[in-house]
Amino acid sequence: MLDLRPNCEFCDRDLPPDTAEARICSYECTYCAECAENLLHNVCPTCGGNFQPRPIRPRRNHREGKALGLGHHPAATRRHHSPWSAAQIAEMVHRLASVAPDQR
């Protein structure tokens, strides 16, 4: 199950569980749409993969007899920050931005 991390790992912007502005890679590295598109150019600085919009977990359970929704599976609260320096991020982005995600 996705963590639904609470912040952009680059700029630290809050990304609540119902925002359409969160982007994730396949390892759940989480960035705001602005950073993912304009600074990272769709290159995850950790794995080199691409980003997709993070799904929104429904606030409430819509199925009888099932434990679903944020009430049963709340978003994570621990904030994450990229371990990479600005120079390391810039190098990875420069090297991979022109390579299609399925070719990285």
Rank of each mutant, 00 (worst) to 15 (best):
L68W: 12
D102Y: 06
Y31S: 08
R13Y: 01
W84E: 14
Q103E: 11
E28I: 03
G71S: 10
F10G: 00
D14N: 01
A36Y: 11
E34H: 15
D102G: 05
I24Y: 02
T30S: 07
C47R: 04
H94S: 15
P53F: 02
L2R: 08
P45H: 07
L4K: 03
P53N: 14
V93E: 11
Q52C: 09
R95L: 06
C8H: 05
S82T: 15
P16M: 01
H94V: 06
N61M: 04
H72Y: 15
T19Y: 00
S98T: 14
P55N: 04
R13V: 07
A75M: 02
M1R: 09
C32A: 12
N38S: 12
H94Y: 13
F10V: 11
T46G: 03
P55M: 08
P16D: 03
M92V: 11
C32Q: 11
T77E: 15
C8A: 09
S26E: 10
V93T: 13
N38G: 00
R13S: 14
F51C: 08
H81G: 04
F10Q: 02
P16S: 03
N38H: 14
S85V: 06
N7F: 02
R95E: 12
A97G: 00
F51A: 14
N38C: 10
P6K: 07
Q88G: 15
C44A: 07
T30Y: 04
A87R: 15
Q52L: 08
E34R: 11
G71M: 06
A20P: 01
I56N: 02
V99A: 00
P58T: 14
K66F: 09
N7A: 02
P101G: 00
S82R: 07
C25R: 04
E91V: 11
D3Q: 13
G69N: 10
A33T: 07
N42Q: 14
R5S: 13
A20G: 01
L15K: 13
N7K: 08
Q88N: 10
A33I: 07
D3L: 06
